[in-house]
Structure formats: C-alpha cells, structure tokens
Amino acid sequence: MEADTTTWSPARVAALYDVGNTWLHRVHPLTKLAAVLPLTVAGFAGDSIRVPAVILIVAVLTLLVSRLGSVVLKSLRLIAPMTFALFVIHGVVRPYESEPIASWGPISINAEGLALAGTTAARLAVFVIAVTSAMTTVHPKVFATALIQRGVSHKLAYAYLAGAELLPEMRLRASQILDAQQSRGFDTKGSLPRRFRTLFALLKPLLVSSLIGVEMRTLALESRGFSRLGRRTSAVEVEDRGKLLQRSLLAAAIPLVVLAILW
C-alpha cells in the first residue's frame, strides 16, 4: 500500500514538496529522478538553444495543464537571478569583436552574447525544472524509502532525511537565537568587526546545543538497531515498481545526446 503523504505535515521538512494528488505525484519517485538525467543531458548537449527551449516549453505546458503551476513558479524564482546575471555579463558587459546590435554610451548589446546567455539560461532552466518537478511531487520520506528499497544504505538515507528534517528545525533555532541575542543588545547592523563578533555569538549556542544533542541522538539510534545488519521494515511503504522504465530513462540519455548534437 502506498503511503498517504497528504496527511503529513510538509512544514516538518525543508522541502520543495507540495501536498497533492496529480499524475506526477503518483509516479514512482525514482522514475521522476531517472527522468532528470536524459532531460538535463539533452538540454546541455549541442550548441543551439532549440533543444533546451523545446524541452522547456513542453515541460512548462505539461506542468500548467497538470495544475502544477507552483513548480514553474519555484523554478522561475531560482533561475531568474541567474538569467539576469547571464544577460548582463554575456549580453551587455562582455566585449565582442562583432558589431553590437544596440549601444547607449558605454553600454552595448551584442547578439552573440544574448544568444549565449539565452542558451545557458534555457539549459539551466531545464535542469532546475526537472529537479523541481521531481522533488515537488515526492515527500522526502517516500523518496528515502524508495532509495533504501533499491539498495541504498539506510544510513545514507537517514543522513539525507535527517538533514532535510533538521534544516527547518535549525532555521527556527537560529531565528530564536537571533531574537534572544538582539534582545541582549547584539548589533546586527554595526561595523564589520562588530558584525563578525555577532556572527560568532549567534553560531556558538547553535553549535553547542547541536553537539550536545548528538550524544542523545546516537543513543536513540543505537537503541533502535541503527548499526544492525540485515533488512529493515519501514513505517512508510512505497510500491516498488517501474524498474524497466527507470532503466530505459537512464539509457535514453545516450541517444538523446546524439540527437541533440545532430539537431
């Protein structure tokens, strides 16, 4: 039986994850992850913008039709500053031997630079949208369980999941420490040396409390048989399916690279 993630609180993990029941939510987590590889290599192969642009248009339309506009927004938020920097550095700032298409005083816009910026932005957008689509529609616990089912060490999966769960907890603790230190008169806007001192005052309690908690966590894990060898059962169940599709997706990366270069 599949885990009903709709009842889990997304706030407990630092995650792109959105609760939902779209077709993409129902696809096996590793199938979604396997699809990232051929899409990304196809996007990066070849010199032209055509391949990444086509992938991007199809991906955005599919996501919008599937009511997954949030994936597009999250990807856009991440890729926008990079796209801006790419267009400024390659399209405006970088000197070229060819004639600029427009000039205003020292600023000139070059077609060659714009093309390079556009291609790079499209490639990065393909990668970002592929990863974001995969991870917005899978709860980290389900993802970690699926990895363990395919032979990934449960210890590695624990570290991944605990990391994802610890991020919001540490962020909360960091903001509490920040508030507490500010109420004691710590200056977050003073001179550079003063801000460095504040940084140390903020990090120290966070680190000390984290390290003190390590001993307790270690004992708790050991009492649950963390170091024991052998198979484990899991509270989260993920139906182990789609192996052939996943292998095909990974294998598809090779012909896709060839096609992208030739096109």
Partner: peptide, 13 residues
C-alpha cells in the same frame, strides 16, 4: 553512529 548523527548537524550548520 556518532559520525552519521553529526552529518545532518553539519548540513544544518
């Protein structure tokens, strides 16, 4: 086990 517990702490830091 302590090393595995320290890894998520390092990720957080």
């Amino acid at each position: 086990t302590t090393a595995w517990v320290l890894i998520p702490v390092a990720i957080g830091i």
